[in-house]
Write a protein that binds this DNA or RNA. Structure first.
Lengths: 233, 233
DNA sequence: ACCCCGGGGGTGGTCCGACCAATACCGTCA
DNA sequence: TGACGGTATTGGTCGGACCACCCCCGGGGT
């Protein structure tokens, strides 16, 4: 018979691959609107239900975006869109994997901070300082955490590598930090954290990449070591 | 009325969050079987169609695994499962983002190779050598690529950080390497690649982390620089 | 007593058709 | 000309039906 249907895996899986291929080949550009669910389904010869599952899958991956009443669009395919799912890893990891994640973060964060020291602009530096002072001016753990996240986010952005910044964002996802930070800060690590943040800021101000790298690595490494001992018990 | 339904976003999105939360809270363990689609749907008060979309989404994220005729199971939630989607980023990226990805890979790969130099066992070293010699013994680009991937994969595994290895795996996804490598190797870079691989191997053999770091960074950096100039034109 | 195998119930995979809700478009009217 | 409103379009949800596949259990043979 005709061999038009390779029949590998589920029809939904095939639809996902087809759409992904269309984007990879450039037949679908970022921001472009796709045909309607009904049209897409008939084009690929599958039911609307299966097509919807494929679209939903690509939506959670940050590849597509569905607007109710309007249509389905390809996202801008920027690092932030595609790496949003990275946070899921951090949220669902526990035990030894948390240490591994912190190890990855230490490696990337230290390099990003070093790059930032060389590249950061006065405006960006001012933004970093804003969060630094705000972080030291309050006792509310929630607020401290928020400014802590923003502090590192600004630095990552100053490194001029959106992909790295997006990965670091995922590695610092709110639930992840909240889970690890809670225990860490309960042991009176506030003072140490402030000192480490000050060291990072000093290195940025001096545009000293090596000092920045060391300060950032030590900062993340402290948490990493604390977590290691926690898991050892 | 009763406020049991926050009504934020689509019902499918809510179902995804519910299941994710169940896993994060430990109410669902890795490997455990979930209720049937029909039961889950009725438990959350939604239709089976919507529940299926939620399950499909979590399946592509590597969180759940559906076995036809058997049931739905939580994966082992290992780094490899959850970071499989990382390959999508590499597959759909182009232009400047490819350089960013290579930059991230250079940072992680150099550190992983350094760690491997300190930790690699004789057995693992033998495996690395196997792919090194196989890579130099053939002229088939496909085979070279396969052994090249395996060469770096073995090294990443020797670094004893599954998370880092999984990320590097995604950054070296077959389609990504095929796209970049093709042009790179067409310019007669085989000899240079062989020399660089030999340098990495020497450093591993000598258990010299700093030499390994430098060799790996240079290896990836070469491709990175080549790609930079390509994009500059 | 043990093994093989065949059938039936349960489960995911696919499809269909209907209706709801948000949006976009366009013609009408002031 | 511009604001308004209605209508067609489109994604979101639902319910049911049927198929394909897997697992388990029980019967029959050795």
């Amino acid at each position: 018979m005709d061999e038009t249907a390779p029949q590998k895996g589920t029809v939904t899986q095939r639809a996902i691959e087809r759409i992904k291929a269309m984007i990879a080949e450039g037949r679908l550009e970022p921001g472009q609107r796709l045909p309607t669910e009904r049209d897409l389904a008939s084009q690929l010869g599958i039911s609307r239900s299966s097509m919807r599952e494929a679209i939903r899958a690509l939506t959670v991956l940050g590849v597509l975006e569905a607007r109710h009443g309007s249509g389905i669009y390809v996202t801008q395919l920027e690092a932030g869109d595609l790496l949003e799912t990275f946070g899921v890893v951090a949220d669902l990891s526990r035990g030894p994997r948390l240490v591994e994640l912190l190890e990855v973060r230490r490696i990337l964060e230290s390099t990003a901070t070093a790059l930032a020291a060389a590249r950061i602009t006065p405006d960006q530096l001012a933004e970093v300082e804003k969060h630094l002072t705000a972080m030291n001016a309050t006792d509310d753990p929630e607020e401290i955490l928020a400014h802590d996240l923003a502090f590192h986010r600004e630095i990552a952005m100053a490194a001029c590598n959106d992909t790295m910044a997006a990965i670091l964002e995922g590695l610092s996802s709110r639930t992840f930090r909240a889970r690890v930070w809670r225990g860490y800060q309960e042991e009176g690590a506030f003072a140490r954290t402030r000192r480490e943040h000050a060291a990072i800021h000093r290195a940025l101000l001096a545009h000293d990449p090596e000092a920045a790298r060391a300060a950032a690595a030590a900062h993340v490494g402290e948490v990493e070591q604390w977590l290691r001992t926690q898991l050892g018990e």
